[in-house]
């Protein structure tokens, strides 16, 4: 399980005055096998929080732990083998998709090429394999990246706005890939978004982030009731 304890972060060297923290006193949990949503408006601090959780930023105070062990620079590589991240540059733009997969799969002993190929087929992205990564459209890149990340069989997949700038046709494929990954391999997903309606049916647990603080959290049923609730209302309820 991924846990954060009273995470605090600010940009710059000196601590800001009271309202200047990008992330303030955040407690957050994400488990394998569940889809956890980090909900928030633009500039709420979602990307910063996910970067802290993944280890790309060092918290000013507080800590992140994975399976009970604190995440630090000594165990970062091992941590990143079990926890994947969607949203950062992950491959060489100048190589083909196949070449990238061949190269990067050497870093993951659990990488399953057959699973990757089946996910690509599911996403109808077979034509991308021999193309150079830079030649792919945004939607194709997202599909390839998610297929690669799921084929690594991580225990947790952190995703920063995976559906942003994706057209509706691709969105369906991407969501299908995610659900298959969770169902087949027990991969957990921590997904940030401000497009709440598209994933409301999938999520198990929700954290609402506003101005760097967790304002509300709970299971989907706690926050939305028996399915008639509206996540937009949950978000606006913070104000």
């Amino acid at each position: 399980m991924l846990k954060s304890y009273k995470l605090n972060y600010h940009y710059g060297i000196t601590p800001p005055k009271e309202n200047g923290f990008a992330i303030k006193d955040v407690f957050l949990n994400a488990e394998p096998g569940y889809i956890t949503c980090l909900l928030g408006k633009n500039a709420a601090g979602k990307t910063t929080l996910l970067s802290l959780l993944y280890g790309m930023l060092r918290p000013k105070s507080g800590k992140v732990s994975w399976d009970g062990k604190e995440v630090n620079y000594k165990n970062l590589a091992a941590y990143h083998r079990e926890v994947a991240y969607f949203g950062e540059a992950w491959c060489a733009s100048g190589l083909t998709v196949n070449k990238n997969v061949e190269m990067l799969s050497t870093l993951y002993p659990t990488f399953d090429r057959k699973l990757f190929d089946s996910l690509i087929t599911l996403a109808q992205a077979e034509s991308t394999l021999d193309k150079y990564y830079i030649e792919l459209s945004t939607g194709e890149k997202a599909k390839v990246e998610i297929a690669f990340l799921l084929a690594r069989k991580p225990k947790l997949l952190i995703m920063d706005e995976p559906l942003a700038n994706i057209d509706p046709v691709f969105k369906v494929d991407i969501l299908e890939l995610l659900q298959k990954g969770v169902a087949d391999n027990g991969t957990g997903v921590l997904i940030s978004t401000h497009l709440i309606d598209e994933i409301s049916d999938m999520v198990d647990y929700i954290y609402v982030l506003d101005n760097g603080e967790i304002k509300k959290h709970g299971s989907r049923f706690e926050l939305l009731g028996d399915g008639d609730g509206n996540l937009r209302e949950v978000l606006n309820d913070n104000n």
């Binding site: 941590y79 990143h80 870093l107």
Partner: peptide, 15 residues
């Protein structure tokens, strides 16, 4: 992009 892709540019999201 072709000429300046280096390992340091992509290892942030890998083990």
């Amino acid at each position: 992009i072709l000429m300046f892709t280096e390992l340091s540019g992509i290892i942030r999201s890998h083990g």
